[in-house]
C-alpha cells in the first residue's frame, strides 16, 4: 500500500526529473552540443554543490517545523573566520577547513539552544543571529578578500574532477545520501521527524522536543559549515559577500523539492533535484543571454506554483483531529473482524 504522502513525493520527484531531462535536452540543442562538453559539465556541477548543501541545511530545520534565516550568515561567517585563521594566524589549511565546519555546527547549536531556552520564536532567533553573524563577518574581513592561495590543500580538493565531475559535487552528493540514510535509520532523526510531525504526540511518548529542536538547528548549522568548507575549496577567496545570497535559494530547493512547511517530512532527493532545476534555470539564462534577474523571477514563480499546487493536491490529513468519516482508501472496517451482536468475545 503506497503512502499517500510518499506517492505525492514520488510524483514530485518524477516531475522534477522530467524537467531536468527536458531542460538538459533543450540546452544541449540550443548550444549545439556545447552544453554537454566536459568543461560545461564541470561548471554545471561545480556551482551545484553549495545550493544542494544549503538546501539540505534549510530542510533540516523545516523538518522540525522551524526555519533558519541565518543560513547565509552562518556560512559566510564560518568561511571568513576560517580564512582569517589560516591566512592571518597561520593555521594549516586543512585545519581551517575543519574549523569552518565546526564553527557552523556551533552557530547552529547556539540557534537551537536560544530557541529552546528563551522560547522565542525560531524565526526571530535566526533573524537576530543572522544579523549578528553578518555584522561579525563584516567586522572580521572588512573590505578585504582573503585569497584562497592561503589554503592550497583545500583548493586542491576544489580542483579535483574525478570522472569529469567536481569532487565537491561528489561530496555534496555523499552528504545527501548520508542524510537520507540518517533520516530513515537513525533514532535521533526519526525523533526529529516525530517532533516536527506532531510535537504533542512526540512529547507524550517521551521524545524530547527540545532535543529535536537543538539537534535540527545544529545539523542545519553543520551543513552551513560544510558549505563554508566548499567555499574555501572552490572560490578564489573569502570576503564579506559570501553567503549574502544564500537565504532565498536555501528555501527554494526544499520547497520546490516537496518538503512540507509545517514540519515532519524531509525530501532529500527532491531537494537535490530542485537544486538541479534551479541550476538549470541559471544555465538557461546564460545560454539565452537573459538578464540575471530573470532567474529570480522564475524561481519565485515556481516556488509559488509549487506551494499552491501542493495545497490543491494534497490536503494533508491530520491524524490529530478526528475525521468524521474514514478516507476513501482506508482499509475497510468490514475487513476488520466486526462483532456480531450476541457473539461472544
Amino acid at each position: 500500500m503506497k503512502a499517500r504522502l510518499g506517492a505525492a513525493l514520488r510524483t514530485q520527484n518524477t516531475s522534477l526529473a522530467a524537467v531536468i531531462i527536458v531542460g538538459t535536452i533543450v540546452l544541449a540543442i540550443q548550444s549545439q552540443g556545447g552544453f554537454l562538453a566536459p568543461i560545461s559539465i564541470r561548471t554545471f556541477f561545480e556551482f551545484l554543490a553549495i545550493p544542494i548543501i544549503i538546501g539540505l541545511a534549510q530542510m533540516a530545520t523545516l523538518a522540525v517545523g522551524q526555519m533558519n534565516l541565518a543560513v547565509g550568515a552562518i556560512g559566510g561567517f564560518a568561511s571568513c573566520a576560517a580564512a582569517i585563521l589560516v591566512a592571518d594566524a597561520g593555521l594549516p589549511g586543512w585545519l581551517g577547513g575543519i574549523l569552518a565546519i565546526l564553527i557552523g555546527l556551533a552557530a547552529g547549536l547556539v540557534n537551537g539552544l536560544l530557541v529552546v531556552l528563551t522560547q522565542i520564536n525560531g524565526f526571530v532567533v535566526t533573524l537576530a543571529t543572522m544579523t549578528i553573524l553578518a555584522g561579525a563577518q563584516y567586522a572580521m574581513v572588512g573590505t578585504r578578500t582573503i585569497q584562497a592561495s592561503a589554503w592550497p590543500e583545500l583548493q586542491a580538493i576544489g580542483t579535483a574532477y574525478p570522472l569529469g565531475v567536481p569532487l565537491i559535487f561528489w561530496l555534496a552528493l555523499i552528504i545527501a545520501i548520508a542524510l537520507a540514510f540518517a533520516y530513515r535509520h537513525t533514532l535521533v532523526a526519526r525523533q526529529m521527524l516525530a517532533s516536527g510531525g506532531n510535537p504533542l504526540a512526540a512529547r507524550l511518548s517521551g521524545i524530547s522536543n527540545n532535543r529535536s529542536l537543538v539537534a535540527a538547528h545544529g545539523l542545519s548549522g553543520l551543513l552551513c559549515g560544510v558549505a563554508a568548507f566548499i567555499v574555501l575549496c572552490s572560490l578564489p577567496g573569502s570576503n564579506k559577500s559570501i553567503g549574502g545570497d544564500w537565504l532565498l535559494s536555501s528555501f527554494a530547493a526544499p520547497i520546490i523539492g516537496g518538503v512540507s512547511l509545517v514540519g515532519g517530512t524531509v525530501a532529500v532527493l527532491g531537494t537535490v533535484l530542485a537544486a538541479m532545476v534551479v541550476r538549470l534555470v541559471d544555465s538557461a539564462r546564460a545560454a539565452f543571454q537573459l538578464d540575471p534577474s530573470w532567474v529570480n523571477l522564475v524561481i519565485g514563480a515556481v516556488v509559488l506554483g509549487t506551494v499552491a499546487l501542493d495545497r490543491v493536491r494534497t490536503r494533508r490529513p491530520s491524524a490529530t483531529r478526528g475525521r468524521r468519516r474514514p478516507p476513501a482508501d482506508a482499509p475497510p472496517t468490514a475487513a476488520l473482524r466486526t462483532v456480531e451482536r450476541g457473539a461472544g468475545a
Binding site: L187, R190, L193, A194, G197, N198, L200, L204, T320
Partner: peptide, 29 residues
Amino acid sequence: VHQERNVIADFTVAENITLGNTPTKAGRV
C-alpha cells in the same frame, strides 16, 4: 488514549506503536 488523536501521520502503524520505545540495533532503527 486521549480524546484527540495523537499519532505521527507520516509514520507507519508499527512506528507509531513503538513511538518512544523504538527498538534499535547497533545504533540504527
